[in-house]
Design a binder for these strands. Structure first.
Lengths: 261, 261
DNA sequence: GAATACGATTCCGTAGAACGGAATTCGAAA
DNA sequence: TTTCGAATTCCGTTCTACGGAATCGTATTC
C-alpha cells in the first residue's frame, strides 16, 4: 500500500509547522482495522523517512497520544486522543439542545437523525439518534466520517456555505475525484443546490449506498460555522415521497430552531 | 489563571519534538466550558509566546484540528479530533466483547459499569454502561477523565501494572499532589493494594465523591497494556457489603473473561 | 471621523531543532 | 550461534521554528 492519506504534509502552504503536521499525520494514518502499526508501516503510509517516524512516535507516546506495545514494538492510538474528542463535544452547547429534538424525530419517523460537521472533504458525525424501537438500523457512531460528495449531508453543507467557501471546497472535491466519476459527482452537487433552492432540502436517494435514502438541511450558526442535519434510513422504509412531504418539513423546522441558539 | 497544564512542554526529555508537543498542548488547553479561545488566552495557558501560538493555531486550523470563528478571531476544537477518537475506539476489539457483559451487570446491579484506560495521571473512560431502568444515574461519558489517585479504577490500575511502572507512576502522582494531601492519597493507594491482594478488588467508598461507592479490577491484556473495569453508584444504593459480596465476584469474573481475548 | 486600545499577524535575523542517510542496536527466528 | 528485519541512535548539515519588535486589523470611545 502506498501513500493514500489526504492529510499528507503540505509543504507548500506558508507558515505551516511541518513537525506538527507530520506528527498529526502519524495519528491520522490509523484507520479502521489497524489496531497496531509499526514504525515501518507508518513510514510507508505517511511517506516520511524511518528516522523521522521513530522520533515522532516517541514523542507522541510520551504525550499519551500513542501507546506502545512492548511485546511487538508497535503503536496504537492512546487515550489522550479520546479526551480531546470529549473536550470538543462537551463544549458544543448546540448538542444539548439538539439531542431531544433529534431523538423525537428519530422515534416518530423510524429513521436515523444525525448532526455532522465538516472535516476536510468529509463529514464527521457529532451526534446520531436512532429510533428507540428500531435498533436494527445501521449504527453510525459519533466521530465516524463519510464523504461530502455523495451524501445528503454533504450537499446540504455545501448549500449552507458562503459562495466563496463553497467554490473552494468544490474545487478541492474535484481535485480528489477520479476523472471518470466527476461528472456524476458534479451532477449530484448541482441537483442538491436545485433541491435546496426549490424545497429547502437536499436529497440522497441511493447515492451514498444503494437502498439508503436520506434528506438533509444546513445549519448556519451565529459564529459563521456551518453544520448539517440529516435524516435517513433504508429505502424500503423511507420513500422519497415520505421524506419530502412528511419528514422534510419537520427536519427543516428543527434546523431552524437549532440555528437560533 | 496561570499555567496549569500537566501537558506543558517538557523540554528536558530527550528526543521529544518540541514543535509537535507544543501544538498538542494547544489542543489540550481547551477544557470544559471553553468553547472558544483566542491566541492570547492560549498563550497564557500554555506559557508560549504570542508569535508561536499564532503559527501553531494557523497550522492546526489548516489541518482541521481547530476551527476559526472569523467573527471573533477565536478558535474551537475541530472535527478532526473527533475522528481520531473514533479511530481509536473502532480499533479496540475488546469493546465489542465488553459491552454486553458490562451492560448485563449494570442492568441487574442497578449501577454504572465502566471501562477505562490510563492517560498520564488520569483515567479516561472508554465505555460506560448504566442500568437501562436507572437513567437518573450520573452520566459519565466516553472520553471523560478522572484522577487516578482517589478512584477505585485508578487504584485497580496501579495494582495491575508491573512493579516498575507502578513505582514510576506513584512517584509522578506524588510530585503532582499538594504536600498536605499526600498522606491521605498514599493511604488510599496502599489500602487499594491490600484490598486487591486479599479480595481481588479495589474500593473507593466516598473517596472520589462523597456518597459515591465503587469497586474496580485491573485488566492485563496480552499485549501488556493494562486497563480497569469499574462498578459504582450512589452509596445509599450500593453498600460496601453489597459491592464486595454480591457485585464484586461478578465484576471479577467479567474481568477474567475480558483478559483472555 | 479621528483617536485609542487591544489583539493577531508578519517580519527578520538567529539559534539550534529537526532532519535523514548511515551505522548501530535490538529482538526474533532459524 | 547466526541471520535477518526492524527500530533506534549518531552526527554533520540545513533550514525550520523561534520570538522580540514592528505592523496590521478591528472594535471602541470620544
Amino acid at each position: 500500500m502506498g501513500i493514500e492519506n489526504e492529510t499528507i504534509v503540505n509543504d507548500k502552504d506558508p507558515q505551516v509547522i511541518t513537525a506538527l503536521a507530520r506528527g498529526l499525520s502519524v495519528l491520522r494514518c490509523f484507520r479502521q482495522g489497524d489496531r497496531f502499526l509499526g514504525n515501518q508501516e507508518i513510514a510507508e503510509r505517511t511517506g516520511l523517512p524511518k528516522a523521522t517516524v521513530s522520533r515522532l512516535t516517541q514523542t507522541l507516546t510520551v504525550l499519551g497520544y500513542l501507546d506502545r506495545s512492548k511485546r511487538f514494538n508497535q503503536y496504537s492510538l492512546g487515550a489522550a486522543v479520546l479526551s480531546l474528542g470529549y473536550s470538543m463535544l462537551g463544549n458544543m452547547d448546540i448538542l444539548k439542545s439538539a439531542r431531544p429534538l433529534m431523538q423525537e424525530l428519530a422515534d416518530n419517523s423510524e429513521a436515523s437523525v444525525s448532526l455532522a460537521a465538516r472535516d476536510g472533504l468529509h463529514m464527521v458525525y457529532l451526534e446520531n439518534c436512532v429510533a428507540s424501537a428500531n435498533m436494527i438500523a445501521l449504527r453510525i457512531d459519533v466521530g465516524a466520517r463519510t464523504r461530502i460528495a455523495n451524501t445528503a449531508m454533504g450537499r446540504a453543507l455545501l448549500c449552507g456555505l458562503p459562495k466563496d467557501d463553497r467554490d473552494v471546497l468544490i474545487a478541492q472535491i474535484r481535485k480528489a475525484t477520479p476523472k471518470g466519476e466527476w461528472a456524476q459527482i458534479k451532477a449530484g452537487i448541482e441537483q442538491g443546490a436545485i433541491d435546496y433552492q426549490e424545497r429547502g432540502l437536499c436529497f440522497s436517494l441511493g447515492d451514498w449506498r444503494e437502498n439508503v435514502n436520506s434528506i438533509a438541511v444546513p445549519l448556519t450558526h451565529a459564529d459563521g460555522s456551518v453544520q448539517a442535519l440529516n435524516c435517513g434510513g433504508p429505502a424500503w422504509q423511507l420513500s422519497a415521497e415520505k421524506l419530502e412531504n412528511d419528514i422534510g418539513p419537520r427536519l427543516v423546522e428543527i434546523g431552524r430552531r437549532l440555528e437560533n441558539i
